[in-house]
Each structure stands twice: as C-alpha cells, then as structure tokens.
Design a protein around this nucleic acid. Structure first.
Lengths: 94, 94
DNA sequence: GACGGATATCGATGGTTGTCAATACTCAGC
DNA sequence: GCTGAGTATTGACAACCATCGATATCCGTC
C-alpha cells in the first residue's frame, strides 16, 4: 500500500474512530428517511450543540456524511457507498 | 448503539486509523506465511525500530494483530476475523 | 427590518498521540 | 557467564484533538 493511499484512508478511518462519531453514524442510519438534523442528535449523545456540529463537520469533510440545508435545519445523511469502500479495505487485507 | 459498544469499537478503529499502521497491516497480510517480524517492517516504512514496535503493540492491544516470539524474533500475524468484524460494523450501518 | 430559533465558527484548554533517543530486556551461541 | 542481535520500554517533546463557552451567521416569521 502506498504512503499516499494509507494517508487518505487513515483520514477516513480517523473520522469514524471516535465513540461519539460512531454513534452519530449509527443514529443517522437508524433514523426515519436515513437522515437527521443536529437538534435530533445532541440529546441522545449528551453533548453540546457546538460539539455535535463539530463532529458532523469532521464526518462531512471525510466524505462519510452528506449535509443538506433545508430552511433553518441542516439534515445529515450517509454518503452511499462511503462506508462500504472502507469496509472493503478491511476485508481485502485479511 | 450503546456508549459502551461505541467506546470499544472506537478503540479498534483508532488502532487502524493511522497511515503507518494501515501499511503495517497491509505489509503483514502480503508477506509470505502471512506473518512478519519487526526487522522486515522498519525499512519499508522508513521509521525507527522503537516506533514500529510501538505501532505493532497498539495493533496487538486492539486485538488486530497476534504476536508470537520464536527465538529472538517476534512474528506478527493478523488475528483471523478481527478485520472482518470491524468491516461488518461499517456495512451494517449503511 | 426586527426577532427568535437552528446551526456554524472561534478561542481556549486539558488530554491524547506519534516520533525519537536512550536504555533495558531476551535469547542464542560461544 | 559474556557477547551480540532483535525487540520492548521509558522519558520527553511537539502536534493534534475533543470539549466547552461565547459569539456569529443564516433563515423564517411577524
């Protein structure tokens, strides 16, 4: 594996290598319509709004979540195939 | 997802969320016999021996690598199923 | 245009982590 | 037991990160 590819993959794995971000992804995938807004996510995590917003930004920057602003609300959904490609890396290197 | 499970999974993802550790896993899985010793791994990564030993310890502690001492050499191999269970978490939450 | 609610950004802080140099440990051979 | 080679551990330092409070931005409503 090249150093460049390892660097790129590590950035994506780093994005989900946090307990709160794992729970965010899990919450969003279990939500109705496979999307959720920030206000739905702060309470179950027990974190403040700025912190949740920060974690969501990390996941968006890593290409794992998609952000769509509808009016005042920001809806987050999982980018199709993003997690599957990461899973593929793990199953290939076994 | 419970906070405890998220914490436990995050520890494993953190272990592979590093470019050098990703390369270590890749190098080991591509080695003859699916195992390698520290001396085989320092040169391709361009890191010092203590640093490589540290990364390998992180992977062993996370349950991803298995360490077997044979004489003076320490051989590392991938724990069967460890990466697959992590990959399963990603494919289920899509 | 002013207000209020939802979200994003900024600054600061305590904790974690990757890396290296130096050193200690372990085992095989003499 | 001594030596040398392979590996592990320790201590230190710089860089990064998760969290929070305060504040700014954005948008619908009145």
């Amino acid at each position: 594996m090249s150093a460049e590819r390892a660097e790129r993959l590590a950035r994506q794995f780093k994005a989900i290598a946090d307990p709160n971000r794992l729970r965010l992804v899990s919450l969003i995938s279990a939500s109705a319509g496979n999307e959720a807004c920030v206000c739905d996510l702060t309470e179950p995590l027990g974190l403040g709004q700025p912190t949740v917003s920060h974690h969501l930004k990390v996941l968006v920057d890593a290409g794992i979540l998609h952000r769509e602003k509808r009016g005042v609300w920001a809806y987050f959904s999982i980018v199709p195939g993003a997690l599957d490609s990461l899973a593929g890396v793990l199953t290939e290197a076994r």
